[in-house]
């Protein structure tokens, strides 16, 4: 499941929330921009937490309330409280993506 090293295909990113319709969709838009800003090729999907449990992803992004239970569900799990702050999310993603070798 883990794509260590250089990316050959788009990163699978999942934004999560309780219902999977509103909050995670807002976050998806912010995540798409943050990843573009970082220059990472990614496909972002939004899911509710219960569906998210059965989906494989390289990166999971959500609020602390939801990411806690996903701590080991993906190589990179990022917690963010402001779903509309593109720069803040890009900053949070930078180090863990580098660590995985997904960002130079």
């Amino acid at each position: 499941m883990t794509k260590k090293g250089h990316l050959k295909e788009p990163l699978k990113v999942m934004t999560i929330c309780g219902v999977g319709m509103g909050s995670s969709l807002i976050l998806r838009s912010t995540a798409e921009k943050a990843l573009r800003q970082l220059g990472v090729d990614a496909e972002v999907a939004h899911e509710d937490v219960s569906s998210a449990r059965s989906v494989d992803a390289d990166v999971i992004i959500g609020q602390a309330l939801h990411t806690e239970e996903f701590e080991n569900a993906a190589p990179v799990v990022v917690t963010i409280s402001d779903f509309t702050d593109v720069d803040a999310l890009a900053n949070k993603l930078r180090a863990p993506l580098k660590e995985q070798g997904w960002l130079v």
Binding site: G18, G22, S23, L27, Q63, L65, D82, F83, D85
Partner: peptide
């Protein structure tokens, strides 16, 4: 589920 609908400050 908690106040996750508070999506930003």
């Amino acid at each position: 589920q908690g106040p996750y609908i508070v999506v930003a400050p």
